[in-house]
Simulated assay, not measured.
Amino acid sequence: MIISLIVAVAQNGVIGKSTGEMSWHVSEEFKHFKNTTKGYPVIMGRKTFETLGKPLKERLNIVLTKNPDYKTNYDDVLIFTSLDEAINFCKEKKFEKIFIIGGAEIYKLAIPVVDEMIISRMKFFAEGDVYFPDFDESKWKKEKLMDSELFEVYKYRRN
């Protein structure tokens, strides 16, 4: 199983706002995210899930929370209290690939264990107070997948 992380990052490292608001709306990047993750399980933190407001369609939605009593109004959303538990569940179900989709705390936990990262590098600075964690680029092979007017997409594969 391939463990992948997907994120959009502004030039100043911003990925969002702690209020849950998006820092930008770039429909082409949203389309890239949807097309890349469609059909695969997506793992996200509770705050990210609550910001979305509902499960993402055509994907198994897995929410991580430290609260073992956390519930959603959606029967098809799975809840785990650790990233390891969620990943092990996906391995047992023999999924081909899974995506870690945020937020910052979950990305920080995931970077040491993911096989690849798909990073949309936005070509602008953004307002926000939630940042993508730093990582050592020398430990990754970087390949450009896409270049558009407002962003470039790179795939990082662990060396």
Rank of each mutant, 00 (worst) to 15 (best):
K97F: 12
S27H: 14
T37R: 11
K54V: 02
Y131I: 05
F49D: 04
K66A: 13
D115V: 11
I106R: 10
Y156F: 15
M1C: 09
G103Y: 14
V77M: 06
K34C: 03
E92R: 07
E149Y: 13
T65K: 13
F33K: 01
M1H: 09
S23E: 07
E149W: 09
R121D: 02
D115Y: 15
I79D: 09
Y74I: 12
R158M: 12
K54T: 13
I87Q: 04
G13A: 05
V14R: 01
M117W: 01
I100E: 02
V114N: 00
I106N: 05
L64D: 00
K139V: 14
E143H: 11
S4D: 04
R46A: 15
K123L: 13
E137H: 05
I100P: 06
T19F: 00
L78Y: 12
D115E: 13
I100Y: 03
G53D: 06
L60Y: 10
K47A: 09
Y40G: 08
F125R: 06
K108P: 11
S4Q: 05
F132S: 00
A86I: 05
F125A: 10
E50P: 03
V9I: 14
I6W: 01
C90G: 07
I106A: 03
D75P: 05
T37Q: 07
W140G: 00
P133G: 02
H25R: 07
F124P: 01
M44T: 01
L83K: 10
L109A: 15
E116Y: 08
I6Y: 01
F49A: 09
E29R: 02
L52R: 00
S138M: 11
V114L: 10
K94D: 07
I62R: 08
D115Q: 12
V153E: 13
K66F: 07
Q11L: 15
